[in-house]
């Protein structure tokens, strides 16, 4: 099952080697825009985002165009004389109230449709309990004995100490690598049941299009299906300020084929004979 990851590795490594500083031409776009992602959810969000972006660009071009025209041609230094009779126009004002309404409705309809679709958490093929804590994640595959804690990798942890002297670029996936990745199958609907044992966290992986708050006392749901042709490693971070270690609790998801996933699950069930022991005792693990 390592092979699936390895397939992606050269690309990812190239990115890491290209380094924080130097943007390779090929990777320029994803440094400034939302990733298209690999799930049914993320690709649709991306499409909505781009639609909204171009609508905004259109509005900006029209409004700023008129303004710039005015700034250039209606200036006193050019001898422009103010038209002081121009105080209001009911007709114009109705027009520029109705046009935005039309634009808004045309954006709201696809957004509402997508929202309803995303929030359909029924009939998952796999449920995973995700529990945030200060500072890491605890995963439990519902209906199995497989559970584990996922925390910042040792190499990132060492480099992230104040004045560690270790260059972040020398650490693979600095702050975006964990000791134990969350492994999921591609092509299956996965439902996350998200909660927290201490403060509010937020589980976010941009490529999956999932961000959901982990709140003590609540169990939130989020669902996604990774495209069957998109196995790989997807990285994210906690997206809700949760204290000292907020920047240091990444999320790494490894998506593999269902067969590889089943093999992985069996192997881990055998290892973890004892039932899910529950999340670890909380308390600052970062000093």
């Amino acid at each position: 099952m390592k092979r699936a990851t390895l397939g992606k590795l050269p690309g990812i490594l190239a990115l890491a080697v290209a380094g924080g500083a130097r943007r390779a031409a090929a990777s320029g776009w994803d440094r400034i825009n939302m990733p298209r992602g690999v799930t049914n959810v993320s690709t649709r969000i991306y499409a909505l985002h781009m639609m909204a972006f171009w609508v905004c660009v259109g509005i900006a071009v029209v409004v700023f165009g008129v303004m710039i025209w005015s700034l250039v041609f209606h200036r006193k230094s050019r001898g422009a004389v103010a038209d002081v009779t121009m105080t209001h126009s009911t007709k114009v004002e109705i027009v520029w109230t109705i046009i935005p309404v039309v634009i808004l409705v045309s954006m709201a309809i696809p957004a509402a449709r997508l929202l309803v679709r995303i929030n359909n958490n029924t009939n998952p093929q796999l449920s995973i309990r995700v529990t945030g804590f200060q500072w890491g994640w605890y995963y439990h595959y519902v209906g199995t004995h497989v559970s584990f804690v996922s925390k910042l990798s040792a190499s990132s942890n060492a480099a992230s100490r104040l004045d560690s002297g270790i260059s972040p670029t020398s650490v693979p996936h600095y702050l975006l690598s964990v000791d134990h990745k969350l492994v999921v199958p591609v092509g299956e609907k996965i439902r996350l049941l998200i909660t927290s044992v201490d403060v509010i966290h937020s589980w976010w992986v941009p490529d999956l299009g999932v961000k959901k708050a982990a709140i003590p006392g609540f169990i939130n749901q989020a669902s996604f299906t990774i495209a069957p042709n998109k196995p790989g490693v997807y990285r994210g971070q906690c997206a809700e300020l949760c204290g000292r270690g907020h920047a240091f609790m990444p999320i790494v998801v490894r998506a593999v084929s269902p067969a590889q996933f089943n093999a992985w699950l069996e192997q881990h069930s055998a290892q973890q004979t004892e039932a899910a022991a529950g999340p670890p005792a909380t308390g600052p693990s970062r000093t």
Binding site: G20, A21, I32, N33, M34, P35, W204, G236, L241, A247
Partner: peptide, 23 residues
């Protein structure tokens, strides 16, 4: 900061992954 957010940088983090360095 628009670019950083879209590319995946959370707010309120004290340190970030190297790919966010440029912006």
């Amino acid at each position: 900061m628009h670019f950083l957010g879209l590319a995946g940088m959370p707010r309120r983090i004290a340190d970030y992954a190297p790919q966010f360095t440029d912006w």
